[in-house]
Nucleic acid binder design. Structure first.
Lengths: 180, 180
DNA sequence: GTAAGTTTACCGTCCGGACGGTATTGTCAA
DNA sequence: TTGACAATACCGTCCGGACGGTAAACTTAC
């Protein structure tokens, strides 16, 4: 039944993500992922025909979640709207998921080329932000700072605490077009 | 002879760095590193008693190079001096080494805990920057943006081109204390 | 001659993936 | 409606290669 199928796939993706975070991105094994998801290795390989396919799915999953968060608002039309939405999303992400997006790391460890879709996406996204920005230089700066925050998560560095993060975000928001 | 010993060690570290970039951080094998450095695997294991030790050395090497670049200037005393030096360093790094610091990735893939020294260092460094800054919020923002640039290198994302990077750096420098 | 540096040979383990099976569900002609 | 025949979802085993690490012998340099 279609419902079940999706659920198993999702369980595998989640299990892989968790294991990557726990055992180190480079030690992700199919057996371990299958075991944690409560499936046999054969079962895993039914859903993902190879390890590469699993990792690609993890990257795609990550991008879909990001795109979904960005999709909703009608804000994007207003000046600085895209950037402002991005600030909200990253803030939310930092608060709700303090643990690193280990799927990206696992994919990167396996094959750097696997992040190509993400690279293209980031490139286009910065273009969108700048096209819609009141101050392009400030927009690029903010984009980079958000990547800095995400880098903190990726490498699990805790240099920037909650208060400092809030300070930075407030500083940026104060300089965007009003109601952007 | 002492000279030789250091040189072999260095060759191994360089070989490891290159291979990590080429074959993917998760596929770094001792045999391959040894071969590229022109040594046998046993030879490698004489200098680094285990793979973990090699990777730790790569992280340490990375940090030493970074610290060395930051060490020189008497600038650090002036307001915004530390931050200003940091901007110069990251700019220089982006220009001279466009390829990712794959050693960090390899260490991260093997064991996330291996980056702990780096984490401590970043934490202290941000504190130093802010203690010496004319505007702490701006300082944190700049710190994050620099990490954003380094993140672009780490993940090999080319979203921010040379011109945009220069624009951002100019924007920041214009807002620091004069002659910082 | 001895210690640092390096080699060669080897071991054990882990892991990706192939493969052959099973059970449940769906489809459809007679 | 029912029996034949798939298709879907999953299981368990096995193999071969890759890889980390050990051990012992060899080679300089002093």
């Amino acid at each position: 039944m279609r419902q079940e199928k999706i659920s198993t796939r999702q369980k595998l993706l989640r299990a892989a993500e968790e294991l990557a975070a726990e055992t180190g991105a480079g030690h992700l094994s199919l057996e371990a992922v299958a075991a944690r998801a409560g499936v046999s290795k054969g079962g895993l390989l039914y859903h993902f025909r190879s390890k590469a396919e699993l990792l690609e799915a993890m990257v795609a999953d990550y991008m879909e979640r990001a795109a979904a968060m960005l999709g909703e608002p009608g804000r994007s039309a207003r000046p600085d709207g895209v950037l402002s939405a991005y600030l909200d999303i990253v803030e939310d992400e930092c608060r709700r998921h303090p643990d690193p997006p280990a799927g990206l790391l696992a994919a990167l460890a396996e094959d750097p080329g696997m992040l190509d879709p993400l690279r293209r996406w980031e490139r286009d996204f910065l273009a969108r932000i700048r096209a819609n920005a009141s101050d392009p230089a400030l927009a690029a700066l903010a984009f980079l700072a958000m990547h800095g925050l995400r880098n903190m998560r990726l490498l699990n560095i805790d240099a920037v605490d909650d208060a400092t993060r809030a300070e930075v975000l407030a500083w940026l928001r104060a300089r965007l077009a009003p109601q952007g």
